[in-house]
Design a protein around this nucleic acid. Structure first.
Length: 424
DNA sequence: CCCCCTTTGAAGAGC
DNA sequence: GCTCTTCAAAGGGGG
């Protein structure tokens, strides 16, 4: 018999078991002993060669990816049904996602259908006007409806100047058959891989305009030698920025410094913000050697390449907004607990999609940053990274630190539900 | 301003 | 090979 628990703060969230009991069962060798899918438990047909079937249509895998990256695609197609299915988190049926009947809607502005495959989130793209009857996402602080997608940097993997248009992409289907890379020229919410007109998808409206900005020229430069490309970008990016600044509200124009040298920013790359040095260090810096200065400069310029998102992170990214909309809860910690439960409630097929997606993300990340290691982001490797505070047992020494992970688990279990006590 | 919290999964470190 | 630790995202809360 299934016992449902309804959260008063999130009535729509129902659980078959409270999380603490889930955790307990996992730990005591019960229902969830051991991960049901260690590593990559699902046999997925890696659709890495081409998303297109011989007849030119998209493969189911590519469609799945598209649906996840662009969940509103079918909305634009007018599929109220699928939208509803997407909305109902308690029925995570993949039908609307994996169904071959769902037509792939070509973006009206000719964006390559696979463009979102190299993005981390779908938040930056709104294919057309959102339906007016959809509940507005209101900022709890201001009461102002939030824009459906934030105006921050665009989610693309940047390419180093030397690799633009040269590297054979690991995911061959990311590259159009014409041989042109799909990486779009983008500034904030702008993307347009086949440049003639600049197309803008604003948060609540979409419009397009002809522009004198030489996107086509820029596109052509991507195939030129590195020095030429760099020179071109050096002169062009600023003018692109000023062009955008002159025509669009500030929130739609990303700061110039956020652009990679290619002009293709990505959330995986974060320029470390250099903290103002204290007066003491300022005094010291007066006598600092050139070596130190150059070291600082190097540190300053060194981009922070973030880890690729794992399956759960991708799931969280996609589902967070929905959960937040359904709940009165706003704290991420609480939302994440709900998401964690929902993750476990997903069918294997549903989870498999995210594992596959994460695998592709890792693969792409590996290709774009060959020398990168997760170690690079460990404490001390990048700017000022906090050291996670651990709970210390009374007589604990540094050599016998308790597992922070275990600590969190116990903490979570203890605070999640009173019935948890029964499980112990 | 910065860290904590909270989730899962990947990967590195250390034994 | 196993265990432990850190970091990915997110954003309210708190020091």
């Amino acid at each position: 018999m299934k016992v449902l628990f309804l959260s008063p703060l999130c009535p729509s969230v129902s659980l078959s078991l409270p999380p603490a009991m889930l955790a307990a069962k996992r730990q005591d060798g019960g229902l969830f002993k051991g991960p049901p899918y260690p590593g990559y438990p699902f046999i997925m047909i890696p659709d890495l060669t081409s998303p297109y079937l011989p007849n030119g249509s998209l493969s189911p895998t590519a469609r799945t990816y598209l649906q996840m990256k662009w969940p509103l695609l079918d909305v634009q197609a007018g599929s109220l049904q699928s939208r509803q299915a997407l909305k109902d988190a308690r029925s995570p049926s993949p039908a609307h996602i994996v169904s071959n009947k769902v037509p792939v809607v070509q973006h009206p502005h000719h964006v390559h259908p696979l463009t979102p495959l190299i993005t981390y989130s779908n938040e930056h793209f709104t294919p057309g006007n959102p339906p007016p009857h959809l509940p507005a996402d209101v900022d709890p602080k201001t009461g102002i409806p939030r824009p459906p997608h934030p105006p921050d940097i665009s989610p693309y993997y940047p390419l180093s100047p030397g690799t633009v248009g040269q590297i054979p992409h690991p995911l061959g289907w990311l590259v159009p058959q014409q041989g042109q890379p799909v990486y779009p020229i983008t500034t904030g919410g702008f993307r347009h891989p086949y440049p003639t007109a600049l197309t803008v998808n604003a948060s609540m409206s979409s419009f397009s305009l002809k522009t004198s900005f030489p996107f086509n020229l820029l596109w052509g430069k991507l195939h030129e030698p590195t020095t030429q490309l760099h020179s071109f970008l050096t002169h062009t990016i600023p003018s692109m920025h000023s062009f955008l600044s002159s025509r669009f509200p500030p929130h739609m124009v990303p700061p110039h410094h956020s652009l990679h040298t290619t002009g293709i920013p990505h959330p995986a790359i974060v320029t470390p913000t250099v903290k103002q040095e204290s007066s003491q260090s300022d005094v010291g810096s007066l006598h600092s050697s050139k070596h130190q200065d150059s070291k600082k400069e190097e540190e300053k310029k060194k981009p922070h390449i973030k880890k690729p998102l794992n399956a759960f992170m991708l799931y969280m990214k996609e589902m967070r907004a929905k959960v937040v909309a359904e709940c009165t809860l706003k704290e991420s910690a609480a939302i994440n607990q709900i998401l964690g439960r929902r993750w476990h409630a997903l069918s294997r097929e549903e989870q498999a999609k995210y594992y596959e997606l994460a695998r592709k993300e890792r693969q792409l990340h590996m290709q774009l940053y060959p020398g990168w290691s997760a170690r690079d982001n460990y404490v001390g490797s990048y700017g000022k990274k906090k050291k996670r505070k651990r709970d210390k047992q009374p007589g604990e020494t540094n050599g016998e630190k308790k597992s922070a992970f275990a600590t969190y688990k116990v903490k979570a279990a203890a605070s999640a539900h009173p019935l948890q006590m029964e499980a112990y």
